[in-house]
Design a protein around this nucleic acid. Sequence first.
DNA 1: GTGATTATTTGATGCAGATCAAAAATAATA
DNA 2: TATTATTTTTGATCTGCATCAAATAATCAC
Lengths: 195, 195
Amino acid sequence: MASDYHPEMRKIFTHFEQYIKLSEELRNELSARLELLTFKKGQMVHDANVVCTKSYFIQNGIFRTYFIKDGKEVTEFFSAEGEWVNSPRSFMQRKIDIYYIDAIEHTSTFCIQVNNLMYLFNHFPEMERYARLSMGTIFGHLLERITSMRFTTAKEKYEHFLQVYSDIHFRLPLGMIASYLGITQETLSRIRGER
Amino acid sequence: MASDYHPEMRKIFTHFEQYIKLSEELRNELSARLELLTFKKGQMVHDANVVCTKSYFIQNGIFRTYFIKDGKEVTEFFSAEGEWVNSPRSFMQRKIDIYYIDAIEHTSTFCIQVNNLMYLFNHFPEMERYARLSMGTIFGHLLERITSMRFTTAKEKYEHFLQVYSDIHFRLPLGMIASYLGITQETLSRIRGER
DNA sequence: GTGATTATTTGATGCAGATCAAAAATAATA
DNA sequence: TATTATTTTTGATCTGCATCAAATAATCAC
């Protein structure tokens, strides 16, 4: 019951338990393979020029995943507390991809190396299940994102964004939000200025 | 080596083997739980008003997943040979969702019931792995889709579409493509008409 | 095959939002 | 707290695409 794990691990264990039961053995393995890592505001987490071999579970703070288009930074995701962050295609397929990741504010994470994750997949089938189910959740988010990106006006896009990111939107710079939505800063500023 | 399974099952077995090894036992279970089903052109495959309890692996033909927005059909996906099709959130979370699915042309599929799939997940950990890995592939496609939907002009969107659907684009009606891209039929027609 | 539906093309017009430019506000740094 | 750098706001103009309308072409049903 009372655990001798790093007290910070409670959040991430709770996260896993949304999808699977954590055996004592798996808890131990996780605890041994997760490393507490913090990032300062503005610090780079992942560089697009290298293969992503780490995945970060955010304890608190915000990460931004972005890529460069025509010399400008384009936000692909914002990620906050309780989410795993990595460069998905790079991490999963061990190849270079377009995404950079940095910390929008001071952020503390648990980090796992891809080879450690593979070890867990190989020895704990429930980890495979966890991955399948949690990907299902994210999958749903991506679908909704795709739907919301078509047809809607800039204002509708922004309103949808406010719903999805209701708890962190006020911590995100306008310019990053605009590129996330695929509209210009000026347009977003005007939308906000209405009334 | 030589199998006594339905000869049509070769494609789907090959599909699984892109991700996992298929034991004889799992082959048998799959064979017992997959049902060959065909759909006529225009036939409805899934109705948004019910929970989606089946997933279809396309042998040949094309399905369209769409939803209704302001009284009009909006294409969310086209799916062709070698792909699983269902109403994702409905199928995974057993709830009603917005998607209808129909056959754009005569289509033959292998169909699995969700409860049969669950049985397989519970008895064959490699099926969990298969699901995780194959979802990773789809995940990558969704990411690319999201990226391509922002910033690009209607023409760029269409050109990207031609690449992604290079083998089936000519079998898809213009109007369905336009709604998939989030542009009007008229605009797509004009893009095609250039030169 | 022939009329009826449905899909695609073509034309004219209007507007949301991009682009360019520059001021104002906010934040970072010494 | 002054100085610089960055972010956000405001203004003026331009344009790609939506919208509305109607003709043409393709497909379907009998």
